[in-house]
Amino acid sequence: MTSKFDRHRRLRSSAAMRNLVRENHVHIEDLIYPLFVVEGSNIKEEIPSMPGVYHFSLDMLAEEMKEIVAAGIQSVLMFGVPEFKDACGSEAYNDQAITQQAIRQIKESYPEMIVIADTCLCQYTDHGHCGVLHEGEVVNDETLKLLAATAVSQAKAGADIIAPSNMMDGFVIAIREGLDEAGFAHIPIMSYAVKYASSFYGPFRDAAHSTPQSGDRKSYQMDPANAREGLLEAASDVREGADFLIVKPALAFMDMVLRLRENFHVPIVAYNVSAEYSMVKAAAANGWIDEERIVMETLVGFKRAGADLIITYHAKDVAKWLTR
């Protein structure tokens, strides 16, 4: 029999009451919006597997940035897609490459915008792996040198935060030391600390043109079955100087957001990845779901699990929903 003291519904009786006691909220300043920049001019091409997400040339990026700023979004995550690729991903650390050009352009026009630079080699290498290959295997320590050079080049271009996504052992300390030696001790590192070898990245690989030409990334990205391993990865990164920790993907691994929140005191970032986005878009296009309600429920779930920030392709839509 229900006790007279067990009246939980008292606090759910009206919309105003529910708003009064709501524990978690999504704010515009929590959102980080990914951008894909390409070489050329007059390019705004929708990525087929990611409706509403585009490749932008620098001239078209200017118009997109106006929309982003007008929406109130304060942070963007930059991905460059170069035309030239080679075995060592040299365009990643070329000061005049497309990513560095885009960073400079944004910071010149919007100095208050937080520009986060994804730091990896996969979209710059002709083989599509996140590091240098030797006899078909990714060479860890040789790759670290190139990642540090990439981070320094991105910082020189004006990046506010370096976000290494490569999952090499020791990547945080290699980048930290590289930044410090180059005079960028003030630049924080947002580490992809818990990044799984996931099937949820398919549409992103279309966007970044980064599908491996052979093999897979299971030797350096994490096994989706493992959780304790993620805590070890995160602890290493914090020890080496990481200022933020990312969980990627976020939706299928929300338990890892909670585990990191309970064990570390740095900001936790949930990456709402490409397939999570595309599945919602596809279902909404077929009329099977209410897109806004599904997206907001998902993002509130990330916050409830302990995320401070959310990287999401839904950011512009969410910003509109929050301010209407």
Rank of each mutant, 00 (worst) to 15 (best):
M1L: 02
D6E: 06
A16W: 11
E23A: 13
N24Q: 09
E39C: 03
G40M: 15
I47K: 15
L58H: 12
D59H: 08
I68C: 07
I68T: 03
I68A: 03
V69N: 07
F79I: 01
P82C: 14
E83L: 13
Q105M: 03
S109R: 08
E112N: 13
I114V: 15
A117K: 13
V138C: 09
V138N: 06
N140M: 09
Q154H: 15
K156P: 04
A157N: 10
G158I: 07
D160T: 05
I161P: 09
M168P: 10
E181H: 13
A193E: 13
A193W: 02
V194F: 10
A197L: 01
A197M: 11
F200S: 05
A207W: 01
A208H: 04
T211L: 14
Y220L: 12
Q221K: 09
N226E: 13
A227R: 15
A227Y: 12
A235L: 08
D243K: 00
L245H: 12
R259I: 01
N263W: 00
H265A: 12
V273S: 02
V273H: 00
A275L: 13
A275M: 11
Y277T: 02
Y277M: 09
S278R: 03
V280G: 01
T298A: 03
G306T: 04
H314N: 14
T323V: 08
